[in-house]
Write a protein that binds this DNA or RNA. Sequence first.
DNA 1: GGTGAATAGTTTAACAGTTTAACTATTATT
DNA 2: AATAATAGTTAAACTGTTAAACTATTCACC
Lengths: 153, 153
Amino acid sequence: MDKKVIQELIDRYVSVSFEVNKKAEALIKSQIEEDLTIDQHYIIGYIQKSEECTSSELAEAFEVNKSAITAIINRLADRGLIERTRDENDRRVVYLTLSEKGKELIQKTQEKVHLLVESFITQFDEAEITNFINTFEKLALILTNMKKEEVGE
Amino acid sequence: MDKKVIQELIDRYVSVSFEVNKKAEALIKSQIEEDLTIDQHYIIGYIQKSEECTSSELAEAFEVNKSAITAIINRLADRGLIERTRDENDRRVVYLTLSEKGKELIQKTQEKVHLLVESFITQFDEAEITNFINTFEKLALILTNMKKEEVGE
DNA sequence: GGTGAATAGTTTAACAGTTTAACTATTATT
DNA sequence: AATAATAGTTAAACTGTTAAACTATTCACC
């Protein structure tokens, strides 16, 4: 690729990804039920999808320290949205699950978020949005590998 | 579009955008100079690019309240990275500019971030990444319009 | 020209999220 | 049995955020 072209692509990428992130986050925030923060929403969503979720798994997925997760989980558990159960075989680990209240809450919120995403995805034609998401997924893979290299696995 | 296809695209989009955001943010964080946070980095970068930057403009761009901007600007001004100057014609407004120290810092950081973005952008062929960014920019436009509609402009 | 509304920015209090370091409890290694 | 490693928590310090009240200035318009 031409150096100039690359420079331009970089600038465009940096600026558009910033813009989309900010705007998308603001829109999601507007759809979230009750007094859930964005992070709480994502945490609950992750637990919902995950089989046997632990703090360590969350910390890795969200790229933060475990103590940051503890703080968030504490708040959600205090509100009765999340439950903790110890593993009987390895009593160090604590599994996180959603209470009924938590399940209901995330379901309602996910529906709204889905409608939101649908409303902009359907403004593209199928080929374009499919290509876009395909490349996006490739990018996710590349970033994962870059991180692994950095850590030196 | 088929309903099932749309559902699948939504799920893929939601999950891949979350993943890319987290990973990209972690990588950027690893490239940032000294003790700058991600938000501070973005704020300084925005001021650098902007002509006559004000707190209100930043608040709008970052989709937060003005008082959140005040807090960040205070910290950066305390560290001598940003300077405030009042508009002589309208003494309510305060222009934000980078000090020499601030300019040097952001330049060094931007270089690193550019190299980082370059390292993954160049793993795609030109057509694919160009299409990707084009669609991304369309998405930014759509989100901007959605917000305008919501606000009711 | 003076009064009330609008605008730009700040302050304060309260809270969420984050890191680092030290800690508890448990399990693995040797 | 002793030591190291792992899962998670706690505490202190900090950043970012909102909401509400505030200051200072400018605008609108009668």
